[in-house]
Amino acid sequence: MAKLTIDDLKHIKEQTTKSTALRQGGARVKVTVHMGTCGIAAGARDVMNVLMQEMAEADRQDIRVVTAGCMGMCSSEPNVTVEVLDSEPIVYQHMDANRMRQVFRRHALLGEVQTDFALGKL
């Protein structure tokens, strides 16, 4: 019966530094990927995948990634909402892998709203 072997798990443990086991403080930034049926059909899983890769590289404890359902703007899916503490939430539309990278690096990390892809403020 094929499973993840003990070696696979040991490999995972070795590759991950001890610092990832600690998580302190609250979140300053929340990124929501909308994963309703419309979002999934439009490619939200791949957007989420890229976001996860970026999160792994950035290794920031103050950014939280969550999934949510459909907001009702199905024709502009995949939608991603970025909320920075003390700023208004921004809804990004028609997201894809490249746009997600850009939005994460410029908005989530640096606080610069990417107005080209943004719907507007909620």
Binding site: I6, L9, I12, K13, Q15, T16, T20, A21, M55, A56
Partner: peptide, 16 residues
């Protein structure tokens, strides 16, 4: 098995 390494860590899930 992972004893304390949380599955909420992107790096862990990537390896998985």
């Amino acid at each position: 098995e992972l004893e304390g390494l949380s599955l909420s860590e992107p790096v862990v899930v990537q390896h998985l």
